[in-house]
Write a protein that binds this DNA or RNA. Structure first.
Lengths: 140, 140
DNA sequence: GGTAAGCCTGTACCTGGGTACCGGATGCAA
DNA sequence: TTGCATCCGGTACCCAGGTACAGGCTTACC
């Protein structure tokens, strides 16, 4: 273990807040690093890459709990877990896009009709009273 | 004003929680209703319709602050405000959909490559090291 | 060895949109 | 008039993903 990094160095290199490192440690995303004699954390250099992976996984739509899970199982042995979760996540995204598309459609109607009030619209054929979009199914 | 409604009646008819009514009052979405001699709220019957409008606007992607604003300006006089905000909201939605589409694309790569670990993927040509999606521009 | 920058723990706070609980007061019907 | 359902205000809590602050210790450099 050469060139262990201090909290501030890891944070700067990974572009995250120092508090975030401790938060991730509490959440189980980062394993507890060794400490200096005085109690300061000393991180292995690949922690920076790990943080990049975490951020990428977050960007892919995984929650921190899911990322912690994936890191945990993936560290021990290869599993089809990641692939399965990615498939689920794609389904979630498709549902979300469909929902946004429906909302977008209603908004364009509002724009095209020149609506001027939520409650007292004076435009002819106002779409607003019909803007009762169905609540999307909760994927949870 | 005939048949004023009590809190619980409005809540049941509109399908919202009683606490939500008081919350909306605090947030300025509902004007303070008259009170009974004992201090209980007595709502005009069209409050139920107003709540439906609020819920619809929320579904269209407007925050409660924006809805409060829209209700406020739209109540006083017709304005192009709603239309303008709807146009902005469509742009936000388009950005969000584009972002989700990029994420979806990376996820399909993960699925197709049969990735089995976030950090130690054994699949050939693993896309994960390249899964550093750009952070989307903050529309705020 | 001095001193400033950095790090420690613990706790509180932030956003947005609500929800829950408490002790006490009211409303309404029999 | 009694009894139960409902409502009152105030405060605290929920979710996720962090961020901030206070008061005290450590490390690094001159």
């Amino acid at each position: 273990m050469r060139a262990a990094l201090r909290t501030g160095e890891v944070a700067a290199l990974a572009g995250v807040n120092i508090q975030t490192l401790r938060y991730y440690e509490r959440r189980g995303l980062l394993t507890e690093p060794i400490r200096s004699t005085g109690g300061h954390r000393l991180y292995p250099p690949d922690t920076v890459a790990l943080l990049t992976v975490i951020k990428a996984a977050q960007r892919l739509g995984f929650t921190l709990d899911e990322v912690a899970d994936l890191l945990d199982t993936g560290r021990r042995h290869p599993t089809p877990d990641l692939r399965r979760r990615a498939i689920d996540k794609i389904a979630e995204i498709d549902a979300r896009i469909a929902d946004l598309t429906a909302i977008r459609h209603t908004l364009t109607e509002v724009v095209e009709a020149h609506c001027d009030s939520l409650t007292n619209c004076t435009c002819p054929d106002c779409p607003l009273p019909f803007a009762t979009l169905a609540v999307p199914a909760d994927p949870a």
